[in-house]
Computed example of a mutant assay.
Amino acid sequence: MKEDVSRILKMMEEGKIDSDKAAELISAIKEREKEEPSTITLNKVSNLEKMLKIKVRSIKGDNVDIKLPIKFVKAILSATGRIPGISMNGTEGMDIHMDMIADAIENGIDGKIVDIKSANGDIVEIAIE
């Protein structure tokens, strides 16, 4: 868009178009951009094909590896506000809110979104991959 606007302004500067025509063209460019899907929207769509991965390593030897499709997680979080069977509040010092995970999914964020190591050595990692 910036390149298009720069060209329009240059044409106006050179006297090829007047300021009214320049404003009209810039408005048309802005309208076209509103109609085209944004990069964020495209990331959200592709993000739905990914997996939510939860890894817990407890000092007591309790190890958990969970992999869930993002589409499933998004539907469950929308319906219940939580993922059944997964409580992030039970591990001391590791209060993870499902809202945070829902926001990451909704905003198309991927990669590691949670990486916690408690004082007693428990580890929780949550990633969207």
Score class of each variant (00 low, 15 high):
M1T: 13
K2H: 13
D4L: 12
D4R: 15
S6Y: 14
L9W: 10
L9G: 09
K10V: 15
M11Y: 15
M12N: 10
E14W: 09
G15T: 07
K21D: 08
A22W: 10
A23R: 15
E24W: 11
E24H: 13
L25I: 03
I26T: 08
S27M: 03
S27A: 10
A28V: 04
I29H: 12
K30E: 13
K30H: 08
R32K: 15
R32A: 11
R32F: 01
E33H: 03
E33F: 07
K34V: 00
K34C: 01
K34F: 01
E36R: 11
P37F: 09
T41S: 14
L42T: 05
N43K: 04
N43S: 05
K44R: 09
S46Y: 09
S46D: 05
S46V: 04
M51N: 06
L52M: 07
K53I: 12
K53V: 11
K53C: 04
I54S: 05
V56F: 04
V56G: 01
V56C: 04
V56N: 05
R57P: 00
R57M: 00
S58I: 00
I59T: 11
G61C: 01
D62M: 03
N63Y: 06
N63H: 05
D65G: 02
K67I: 01
L68M: 06
I70D: 04
I70V: 02
F72N: 02
F72K: 11
F72H: 11
K74Y: 08
L77W: 02
S78Q: 07
A79N: 08
T80Q: 02
G81I: 04
G81H: 13
I83D: 01
P84S: 03
G85M: 02
I86W: 05
N89I: 08
G90H: 11
E92M: 09
E92V: 12
M94K: 15
M94L: 12
D95S: 15
I96Y: 05
H97F: 14
M98A: 09
D99Q: 12
M100N: 10
M100W: 11
I101E: 14
A102H: 10
A104F: 08
I105C: 03
E106F: 02
G108F: 10
D110F: 03
D110Q: 10
G111Y: 01
G111I: 00
K112C: 01
I113Y: 15
I113F: 13
V114G: 12
D115G: 08
D115P: 06
D115T: 05
I116Y: 07
K117I: 04
S118R: 15
A119T: 14
A119Q: 09
A119L: 11
G121I: 01
G121R: 07
D122K: 05
A127G: 13
I128G: 06
